[in-house]
Amino acid sequence: MHRIFTPWLIMAGFILLSSPAFANTPTAEEIINKANLAAYYGGEDGRSEVSMVITDGQGRTRNREFVILRKDKTDGGPQLFYVYFQKPSDVRKMVFLVHKYLDRDDDRWLYLPALDLVKRIAASDKRTSFVGSNFFYEDVSGRGVEEDTHELLETTESHFVIKNTPKDPDGVEFSSYTVWIDTKNYLPLKAEYLDKNGKKYRQVEALTVEDIDGYPTVTKSQVSDLESGSVTVSEFKKVRYDIGLDEKIFTERYLRRPPREVRR
């Protein structure tokens, strides 16, 4: 019996693998990897001026303004971030420096100019608020693609819909999140987070996408906390890619002496 069936199975498998439809549909992992590159690794480096408006559940607003510089060590790999604060006035000239790694905790420093103090910050929890906004550290610098399992739920003409389930559920506050990714440029356009009870409680959306230096770029995004009713809208202005940032900018020297690239 075996002798009869085996060739058939091999042949069937061969046909399946070589069929054009199968080859052209990327796997969930491939889509997520491409989305990660599209969202966080545009160009070799980049610069952007960010203004955030945080509106709490009672409608009170707070503003944050900062310049962010990014340099990739390798595409999809370690990155360097330099964040220079301009507003509010009590954090003016503060600098936040991050050396992001994939295989270990990031290195983070905060420079407090009034004390001339270079403070090192513990960085184990990446799902805490970034500067009091609804954005988490992870939303700013990206979540490691290896930290979740990915499942392609649906492919429409415009979107890949992927469900992401954390491999370490105790390390995060969500049970899963679903991302809508643009099928053309692979930018993640929406993410919905479910809490441990399976209830949707958090949403991240790209509000505006523009083509800048050939890179599709989210220039306005919004994070909503559906439980507290608070919302943060971020606008990214004067975005530029491949400006030739020197790696030495991302060192202690430039905490004490902000580089030209962040001084207006």
């Binding site: 270990r104 910050i121 513990a122 184990s124």
Partner: peptide
Amino acid sequence: ARSTVLGGIGN
């Protein structure tokens, strides 16, 4: 000396 160690910062 200062470094990340055991998920925190040691000095």
